[in-house]
Each structure stands twice: as C-alpha cells, then as structure tokens.
C-alpha cells in the first residue's frame, strides 16, 4: 500500500532527517515508529501527510509516486488519510460535534449524513454524551478522543498519529492505544509515531525503530502481558 523507496529528507539548513529509508507498509498493518526525538519518526508522518516532500527517493502510495504529486491533488489525497496530532489541533470556537464534522463538511456530505457519521464516530470513542461541549471544557484524554473521532469519521484507509499520547498519563495512553487497535481491527492501516517504548510494547503490532534518520530494527512484536485497560468512558 505504502512504499518508501530510499527516501532522503533534507531540511533547509542541511539537517538530514531521513537517510535513504526504505519501508513497506501493507494494508491493515499497525506500525509503531519509535526512537528518540530527532530520529525521523515525525518526518515520515509529515511525508505521509504530504506536509513535506522527499528530497530524494520515492514515496509510493497505491503505486503512485505521491512525493511528486501536484499541489492541486493534495487535498483529495489528504481526505483519505486520517491524522491525529499530539496537540490534537481541535478548534476551540466550536463544539466537539462540529470539530468531528469538519472533514465531512470539507468532503461535501449532506447534513443528514454528517449527523449520522459524527454520532457514530463520537460513540466509538465514548463521547456521544459530550458532543455539545467545547474542546477546552473536556479533559486531555477526552480532547484526544475527539481528535481521533475526527480522524476516523471520514473512514480513511490510512490513519497516522504523531505522539498521540504525548500529553497523556499512562492509563489514558493505553486507552488511546486500545482505541487505535480497535480501528485497526476493522481494517484501517495505522502508522503511529511514539517515543513511549513501554507503551508501544504493550500493543501487538510491527515496531520500526528509527535512529538518526535510519531504520535500526523492524520486527513484529507481540504485546507483553500487562494489566487490562479500563473500559472507555469511565
């Protein structure tokens, strides 16, 4: 589905964030990108979101070199990618419902369809009761779950998350990861960047470790046994 072929990314000023990285991501996979800050995790996500372009090498999505995609085609591409951010990037001037609805408004769905899908997405993250709340009145964990609802509401094939648990404590982090796992189980391909190795180690998935712009290891991992996560919405 996604192939990075000897991708190098040089930022202005000469910092080499990725050095000839090659990586294949198959449909339905759940991939954790781990490593220290500056290892290149975020850069891979930025390339996948087409916020940045590869300096050298190819980024193929469904066989197409999106690294050279013309700017006018980027919006349509991004509509197929769900994104979750560390700071969740919710808009504070509107309700949780309206935040989650935004991708569907952009896609031009009818009001009825939007209402149905937003309620379904909010239900999946356990926040249906808080649809009228403004994001800043919600807890950190709730805000991130609204962000996740927004990322999945348009039913993307690929979901990318950059340090989604960076602002959350242990239990909430695990809860978010379990939520990702559930979406992955219904077929969404997941690429999650996290520096929290302990947390990633508790979730089944493929672990790609980056260091100084190169892939250090790439292996499937089975979750270590740990305490059961608490149920959502409690």
């Amino acid at each position: 589905m996604i192939r990075l072929d000897k991708v190098t990314k040089l930022y202005k000023g000469g910092h080499e964030a990725l050095r000839e990285v090659s990586l294949d991501i198959n449909p339905g996979e759940m991939i954790f990108l781990t490593g220290h800050s500056g290892a290149g995790k975020s850069t891979i996500l930025k390339l996948l979101a087409l916020v940045e372009r590869p300096t050298r090498g190819q980024l193929l999505v469904d066989g197409r070199n999106v690294g050279r995609m013309p700017a006018r085609e980027i919006p349509a591409y991004r509509r197929q990618v769900g994104m979750v951010f560390q700071d969740h990037k919710l808009l504070d001037d509107r309700s949780a419902f309206d935040n989650v609805a935004l991708p569907l408004v952009i896609a031009g769905l009818t009001r009825r369809e939007i209402g149905k899908r937003v309620h379904a997405a909010l239900d999946q993250v356990g926040l249906l009761a808080k649809e009228r709340h403004a994001p800043h009145t919600l807890s950190a964990g709730e805000q991130q779950r609204v962000g996740i609802a927004r990322a999945v509401v348009a039913r993307p094939r690929l979901l990318i998350a950059d340090e989604p648990t960076g602002n959350l404590d242990g239990d909430l982090s695990l809860e978010i990861m379990q939520l990702f796992r559930r979406f992955n189980e219904v077929g969404v391909t997941m690429v999650i960047a996290t520096h929290d190795l302990a947390l990633a180690g508790r979730i089944n998935g493929r672990h790609v470790v980056l260091g100084q712009g190169e892939i250090r290891s790439d292996e499937a991992a089975v979750a270590a046994p740990g305490p059961a996560p608490r149920a959502l919405g409690q």
């Binding site: 916020v51 006018r72 990037k89 991708p103 952009i106 927004r150």
Partner: peptide, 16 residues
C-alpha cells in the same frame, strides 16, 4: 489561521 491550517490538513481545497 488555525482553522485554515487544520482545514487544509483535513483535505480542504483552496476553494473551500
């Protein structure tokens, strides 16, 4: 600005 950035990230066209 924030709204514009987020909309673009979510795939909003320039026209939108």
């Amino acid at each position: 600005r924030q709204e514009i950035e987020v909309s673009k990230l979510l795939g909003a066209t320039d026209a939108f």
